[in-house]
Design a protein around this nucleic acid. Structure first.
Lengths: 266, 266
DNA sequence: CAATCTTTGTGCACGCGTTCACAAAGACAT
DNA sequence: ATGTCTTTGTGAACGCGTGCACAAAGATTG
């Protein structure tokens, strides 16, 4: 999982487990594809394969929503699309603002997947005065000064932060103060928010690091014969002189721009 | 969690739980920040706060790596940076290729967070002949025809897919055939890969849908008095005529572009 | 050297999520 | 109407992840 929830008690929302909620969009996507091909019904087995999950898991997930299937037949595609959409709150319009119109912010603004699922980009906001008025994705960028007014005028409750890490917390606080209660954070920082505000984060660098871990492990297992012994020996050696080895290793790792430097697509 | 793992038995990699691996990058980020401020040591409590997790969890996570702390004092920042970097495989250079240089692909190419953590963008690849040779992030875009050669010449084992959904599976297969064993997928599709290949996915739309679910729930709880009763009644009514209600609802949901339409930053 | 104080490392219990496996339900054929 | 066959819905068991709470370890002070 690339994304992680921040804060939040293990409370179940209306009885639907968090893990199930996270999978509903997957089912919805697969179902919509079937719907477009005018497939009337689908079995849990078929749908599970299309969504990339186990069929038992899918059935249990659906059981939290109610009994929408027909034994011996499967699920009615159109009906299920509707039920899941409703459960996810996609039958209503969700205005969102994107703050930080750098490379990533612009890419998000152009992302077609939002509009097609009930999300409407209400405004693009950036702190750079030079950006103000510039059209991005057919929409003029507005200055941060307008943030509060935009939020309240449009009744925005979902905000997307695509600013550099250094600006994220401040932007977050302004969004929350203005009434935003759900935030999707692309900045590589931990955001602290008051209770009642949901934060989900997407960190591109973290995903790659997790892949690197497994990649390294795979490489290590390949040469699992004598190489494994050599590696272990080397590791032990390095571990013997903590401070010294660390300084060396850490220094070589810190790149030109360090690490934290509020990097970000920007 | 915006990202989810695809396939993969619940095997522990060298004894380190997957959940712990996913948090290591968080700790690393917090530690690097401390390192830059020349903080020599840090307690589990402080570091946990900085990383946005519980201190007991952090200590348990570190215990899987070994006993790197000193009781009564805390952890040596530099040493821990080194150990975690090594564990994640960041002490070596990882060449990556980005396939699909649309808005998102370009944003990723410009993302500074990659280079600073040992990831080197070896090539940008796009299927559009018009893109070939165009410089993006100071690097010429190469045509898909070169994919196999690029992978093998650079020893690339990690690939990033930022193509439209329709092209993702095909690109994935070519990457895997060419030797890539880890894939970060931004296309809104389920990729099927052979055993031994890791896939992590990042889906922007899914994250928003999960936020919408909770947002809807919050809104519902606010008006939890009589409104709740009304809503429940309405829901029951809708549920009574499955097929009919479904057609209506689903139809109104399918936007102009449908849903699956291989949308994507592109 | 002894006493105290801080902080780590971890045993243990609990709860969530996953998976198995099967009974119940309905479609369909005879 | 009866029987067969398919597929759902779910009870139960298991395993992973989380958090508590504390003993052990070491620093620090007198």
């Amino acid at each position: 999982m690339a994304t992680g929830r921040t804060h939040r008690p293990a409370t179940r929302s209306r009885g639907i487990p968090e893990a199930t909620v996270a999978r509903l969009p997957l089912y919805l996507r697969a179902l919509t594809a079937l719907s477009e091909r005018s497939v009337p019904t689908v079995s849990s087995e078929e749908l599970a394969t299309a969504a990339g999950v186990n069929s038992a898991k899918l059935r249990k997930d659906f059981s939290y929503l109610g009994s929408y299937g027909t034994r011996g037949v499967g699920y009615d595609v159109e009906y299920l699309v509707y039920q899941i959409s409703r459960e996810l709150g996609l039958t209503q319009d969700w205005p969102v603002v994107i703050v930080g119109i750098g490379n990533l912010g612009a890419a998000l603004a152009n992302y077609g997947g939002f509009a097609s699922r009930g999300f409407r980009v209400a405004a693009l906001i950036d702190a750079d005065p030079a950006m103000a008025g510039k059209p991005v994705a057919g929409m003029p960028v507005q200055h941060t000064d307008e943030l509060e007014k935009i939020i309240s005028d449009n009744g925005v409750s979902i905000g997307v932060i695509a600013t550099p890490a250094g600006a994220a917390q401040q932007v977050c606080e302004r969004l929350v103060a203005a009434g935003v209660t759900s935030i999707l954070n692309f900045a590589p920082t931990v955001l602290s928010v008051p209770d009642g505000v949901d934060v989900r984060k997407v960190d591109l660098s973290i995903e790659l690091q997790i892949l690197a871990f497994h990649e390294q492990r795979k490489a290590g297992e390949e040469a699992a014969t004598e190489a494994a012994l050599a590696a272990a020996a080397e590791r032990d050696t390095a571990a013997e002189s903590p401070a010294d080895g660390a300084v060396d290793g850490a220094a070589s790792r810190k790149g030109p721009d360090g690490d934290v430097p509020a990097v970000m697509p920007a």
